[in-house]
Each structure stands twice: as C-alpha cells, then as structure tokens.
Write a protein that binds this DNA or RNA. Structure first.
Length: 419
RNA sequence: GCGGGAGUAGCUUAGCUGGUUAAAGCACCUGCUUGUGGUGCAGGGGAGCGGGGGUUCGAAUCCCCUCUCUCGCCCCA
C-alpha cells in the first residue's frame, strides 16, 4: 500500500481516468475497429478479464517477459491462481477450446477491452491499457494473412492515420525454417559473444532472435552481418511469404520488409508484422501481430492454425487529431421553478423525437444562458410565464442571438433545423 | 527491474545562489447588465509549494527517503 497520508488521493500507478473530453475519441476508435472488422466478416467476442494463470503461462511460455515479470497474478478467496489478462489472444484461444468452436471453422472474432501488464509506465505504455484485436482461427492459406493485414491497414486508414504509420513485414518461416535459422544465427552470434551487450548475452540462451532488434550500438554492428532469415526459409515458406507479399501488392498496401522483426514466442511462425508510428517515441508499435499456428495445439487442442493482431487504443488516440464533433444540444430554460414541470414535459417530448436536450437546472436567467453557452447549445427554449400562459415559448438561436415566440405545439417543427 | 528529467492554485507556468501575508495567464465567482449568453471593464475566491523526515533563527527554494509523471533501456500494443 503506497497511498500517502496528507497527499491527494491518486490513481494506481500506470492507470488513468479517461474523462468526458477524451471518451469520445476512445469510443470512436473502438467503434471504427468493430465496424471495419465486421466488413471483413469478423464478429465480436468478449472473454473474461481474468483467467486461470495457466492460460497465459502455457501459451506465452515460461520464459517470456510477460509471464516472468509483467503479470498481475493473485490468489482468489478459494485459492485459485488468477491472472488479469495481459493480452487478448490467449483468452480467445481458451474460449475456442472451452466452447468447442473447432467444429465451426474458421472462427473470425474481434475483441476490445482493457489489458494489464506490470511494467514501468512510459509514454504510450500503461499498466492498464486498452486494445482492440482480431483473431482468424482455422485457415492455413495465405489469404488469411492477406485479409488480416488488410483489415489492420483499412482500420488505421479509416481513422485518418494513413500518413502516420508504416507497415513492417517479415516471415519467420515454418518451424523447420525457423529452427534452421536459429541454428545459423546462434552459430554466428556465439562467435561474437564477447562483444555482445550483457542483455544480449542473456538473450543468446533464452531468445537469440531478439538480439536482432537490440538497440545497443555494438549489437547492431554485429547483427549487421548476421545471417538473414530470408536465406533460411525453405521453399514452402518462401512461397507462402511470396503469396502474401503479392496479395498485399495487389491491394496497393505498401510495406517494408524488416528482417529484424521477430516474435519472441515459440508458437509464432511465418508472418510477423508491425504497424509502426514514428511520432510516439520508443513505443511506436500501433498495431502488431502474426501467425501462431502452434498456439492452439500448445494449449492442448487440435492442431489449428491462427493469425491475428492487436492495436493499442491509447497509442492510436494520441495520434488522432480530430474526430466527429459531438452533436450540439438544445438547452431548455424554465423561467422559474414553477415552470420546471412544463419544461420537463417538453424536454421529454423532444427527446422522444430524437432531439438532444440539455436541461438548465438552476440559477437565474443569466446563469442558465451562460450554461447553455458552455454546453455549446445551438438554441435555447426559454419558458417564461407570459409566453407559457399563451401556449408559447421562446426559441433563441444561440449563434445569431435572435429569439422568436413559438407556439408550443409547433415546437418540434420549428426546431427541425437544429436537429 | 535499471538510468536521466520533472512535480508550485482546476489547468499552464514564474519564483528556486534560503528571508516580510507564494506570483501570473486561463478557468471559476460577483458587479457594470434593470430575469437573456458568447466580447469588454472592475472586483473576488482558490495553492502554502507531491508526501515524509532533516539542516537552519528562518525553506517552495539546501540534504535524505518515498510517491507520481516524463524520457530512455528491457519488453511490448
């Protein structure tokens, strides 16, 4: 417990409140993602925020950073070991098995929601963060990869970010190619072991592929001449990769090959991709994913191929400059409290008709009008005693500052232009 | 987990080689405006300086610890 006496109460480190000025853009991103995913035939799935810890340790591997140091894991009251999900794929894979969905392939799902990782917060990196993601399970062919990448591209373009990212693409090949490459790389790197950074020496045993994208200058000098994975791909893998590249080109989706783009986890194979922004600092990956043909099997299910990606909503939000503005409300101002009931009834009627009505709850006329201004009302309905007595009310246009007397029964007709 | 920078009213900041009641802009409130906004003018409220502990006659200003944010490493979306 680290909250401090005498200090203002704070949110838990790495978490944030998203206030009403920001929620529209977050919602916009989630809506767009779902909308585009649906156009590609994906349907929404919602899996629990908590899973048995095993779900993640078995899929992510015991040595991955996520499992070894980033999971929020605790025992619940019955002693079960529970983990707050650090990513979305494992939960979907689990749901796939739990619900016997192997009978109905392919499974094409979209998800959206918070993830939790115990990391050091940074720009674009929080302990609780939101992702949207998709998984396409059950298709072996490259058309799946093409559609999944195309969908990611489509989504970001739809957000107006077409100039904000580049797509990096690589192939790790099938398990044979990959293990050949690992051997070749290990041989090469071992010869240079003494010049590698301490971090990379550790990685040599745990995860040699990761050394390829080390940011250490010395490491980079060494890896500059390292064997390339493209040279280790067998014919089958080469052909597969070629199909994907060709498919993307046919769709005019531009990408760059990044031979250093690797995935750390063992079940990844073939396609790996990252949509990267230059303007977010060190945490530039906006959307990333790859093919995980080994995952379902590793969880104890049938050997089922899969591919997917996830995108960080906070990171996308930081790049969003503007998005559709909120609809301007019409505010309703009862001249005094005796007119509240009347105002309430009119509000109700108009809301039923689809108008956005902001009720001016209190204060004198000046205060209430000021409030109307603050909520950016396009018009005000003012009820004063005299007007109401004759069955009228005043409609004030807030942009022009002009107001007219309207028969209450015809209100909706006169307000049409503000809808 | 490791290293650099920062933390002063709701927000953005000034002040920080220690010394009277901590300053400004924005926001907020009141009045000019007599039931009516947005501009202008005049007033006003609001922080004891992230938290804790030291040094000192005296600390927002110096020292230590700690929390949070931030930049980078690790890793990832």
């Amino acid at each position: 417990m680290t909250s401090q006496k005498g200090a203002k109460i704070q949110p838990v480190r790495g978490t944030q409140d998203i206030l009403p000025d920001k929620t529209p853009s977050f919602r916009h991103i989630e809506n767009k993602a779902l909308e585009i995913a649906e156009r590609y035939g994906f349907q929404e799935i919602s899996t629990p925020l908590i899973e048995f810890t095993e779900v993640f340790t078995r899929t992510l591997g015991d040595t991955s950073d996520i499992v070894t140091k980033e999971m929020y894991t605790f025992n619940d009251l019955s002693g079960e070991t529970i983990t707050l999900r650090p990513e979305g794929t494992a939960g979907v894979a689990r749901a796939f098995l739990s619900n016997g969905l192997a009978q109905n392939l392919p499974l094409k799902v979209f998800y959206s929601g918070p993830m939790f990782r115990y990391e050091r917060p940074q720009k674009g990196r929080r302990r609780q963060f939101k992702q949207v993601g998709i998984e396409l399970i059950g298709i072996e062919g490259s058309q799946a990869d093409i559609e999944v990448i195309s969908l990611g591209n489509h989504f970001l373009r739809e957000l107006g970010l077409e100039d904000s990212f580049t797509i990096e693409l690589n192939s790790l090949g099938d398990p044979d190619s990959r293990s050949d490459y690992k051997k070749a790389l290990l041989e090469y790197l071992s010869a240079h072991k003494k010049n590698l950074s301490p971090n990379s020496i550790k990685r040599l045993e745990k995860n040699p592929l990761r050394i390829l994208d080390s940011k250490d200058k010395e490491d980079q000098k060494i890896t500059a001449d390292a064997p390339l994975i493209s040279n280790s791909l067998n014919d089958k893998s080469k052909k597969f990769f070629e199909e994907i590249r060709n498919g993307l080109e046919k769709l005019n989706i531009s990408y760059v090959i990044n031979e250093r783009l690797v995935r750390g986890l063992d079940y990844y194979n073939h396609t790996a991709f990252e949509f990267v922004s230059q303007s977010l600092g060190a945490q530039g990956a906006l959307l990333a994913g790859g093919r995980y043909d080994g995952l379902i099997k590793q969880m104890g299910g049938p050997d089922t191929p899969g591919i997917g990606w996830a995108a960080g909503i906070e990171r996308l939000e930081m790049l969003l400059e503007d998005f559709p503005k909120k609809r301007r409300p019409i505010s309703i101002i009862p001249g005094d409290s005796s007119l509240n009931e009347k105002a309430s009834i009119i509000s109700n009627d108009l809301r039923q008709l689809g108008y956005t009505i902001d009720f001016a709850y209190s204060g004198n006329m000046k205060k209430r009008l000021k409030n109307s201004n603050k909520v950016n009302a396009c018009a005000c309905i003012i009820l004063d005693k005299e007007a109401v007595k004759d069955g009228n009310c005043i409609v004030r246009d807030m942009d022009r500052g002009e107001q007219i007397l309207i028969d209450s029964n015809n209100l909706s007709y006169h307000l049409k232009k503000y809808k």
